Amino acid sequence: MQIFVKGLTGKTTTLEVEPSDTIENVKAKIQDKTGLPPDQQRLIFAGKQLEDGRTLSDYNIQKESTLHIVWR
């Protein structure tokens, strides 16, 4: 499925993911596209910070959802 990651600059990155992907895995995909290391990424969805060990489905993140990224 496709999801979007929007940064503070307003730039949006598209990712191809599975609902079973962990947040850690998603951060690795973001690094592949942007070069930003996972330890500098904070992902937010529906006002919650996403924890590395959880999956996208744990947070009810579905296709075409938009996550927000904040740099540490």
Rank of each mutant, 00 (worst) to 15 (best):
Q49D: 14
V5D: 01
L67H: 00
K27C: 02
T12H: 08
G35W: 03
E16C: 10
D21S: 08
K63I: 06
T66R: 04
Q41F: 15
T55E: 03
R72Q: 14
S65D: 13
P37G: 05
L43T: 01
R54D: 06
T55P: 04
K27H: 02
E51V: 09
G47M: 04
R42V: 15
L56I: 09
T66H: 15
S65R: 03
I61N: 00
K48R: 11
Q62K: 11
F45T: 02
H68T: 12
K11L: 13
D32A: 14
E64C: 09
L50N: 00
R42Y: 13
V70M: 10
D58N: 04
V5I: 14
L56D: 00
Q49I: 15
K48D: 05
K27N: 02
K27F: 03
G7K: 04
K63M: 11
L67F: 03
S57V: 06
S65L: 03
D39Q: 10
N25M: 15
K27S: 02
D21E: 09
T12W: 10
K6D: 05
Q40C: 11
E16A: 08
H68G: 05
P38E: 05
K29C: 03
D52C: 04
V70Q: 13
L8M: 12
L50A: 02
M1S: 02
T66N: 04
D39Y: 11
P38A: 15
V70H: 11
L36R: 07
G10M: 08
V70A: 09
K33I: 13
D39K: 10
T13Q: 10
L8S: 09
S65N: 10
T9K: 12
W71S: 12
A46H: 14
Q49T: 14
G10P: 05
E24Q: 11
G47R: 04
I30V: 06
T13P: 03
L43K: 00
L56M: 05
D52P: 06
Q49R: 09
G10R: 07
V70T: 11
Q62A: 10
K63T: 12
I69C: 05
S57F: 07
Q41P: 03
G7A: 09
L43A: 02
P38C: 06
P19F: 07
A46F: 09
L15G: 00
S20D: 13
E64M: 11
K6N: 06
K29H: 04
D52W: 03
G10H: 09
V70I: 12
G47Q: 04
K6W: 06
I61W: 01
F4H: 10
Q62I: 13
L67P: 00
L50R: 00
L56A: 02
I30P: 00
G7D: 15
Q31S: 12
S65K: 03
F4K: 07
K33Y: 08
F45D: 01
T66F: 07
K33H: 09
R72C: 11
D21V: 04
I30W: 05
F4I: 06
R42K: 13
L8T: 08
E51C: 07
I61K: 00
F45P: 00
Q40A: 11
S65I: 04
G7M: 13
V70R: 08
Q31W: 15
T12R: 11
V26S: 00
L67R: 00
P19T: 06
T13S: 07
L36T: 07
L43I: 07
E18A: 12
T34K: 03
T9G: 15
L50S: 01
R42G: 07
T66Q: 06
M1Q: 03
D52R: 04
S20A: 09
L36Q: 06
T14S: 10
N60L: 06
T12D: 06
N25F: 12
M1L: 06
D39R: 12
T22Q: 04
T55N: 05
P37N: 09
G47P: 01
T22A: 05
G47Y: 04
T12I: 15
I30M: 08
S65Q: 07
D32S: 13
I44P: 00
F45C: 03
Q41G: 05
P19Q: 08
Q41R: 03
I69T: 03
K11R: 10
G35C: 05
T55S: 07
T34L: 14
I61H: 00
Q40S: 11
I69D: 04
H68V: 11
R54K: 14
V26D: 00
K27G: 01
D52A: 07
T22W: 04
I23R: 00
L15M: 05
L43G: 00
R54S: 08
T34E: 05
Q2Y: 13
N25I: 13
S57T: 09
K29P: 00
R72Y: 14
K11F: 14
G7P: 06
V70K: 08
G47K: 05
S57K: 11
E51H: 08
Q40N: 11
W71F: 12
Q31N: 07
V5A: 04
D39N: 12
E18I: 11
L36G: 04
L15P: 00
I44V: 11
K63F: 08
T12A: 08
R72V: 15
T66G: 02
V70C: 08
E51T: 05
I44W: 14
I61F: 02
E64K: 08
G35F: 04
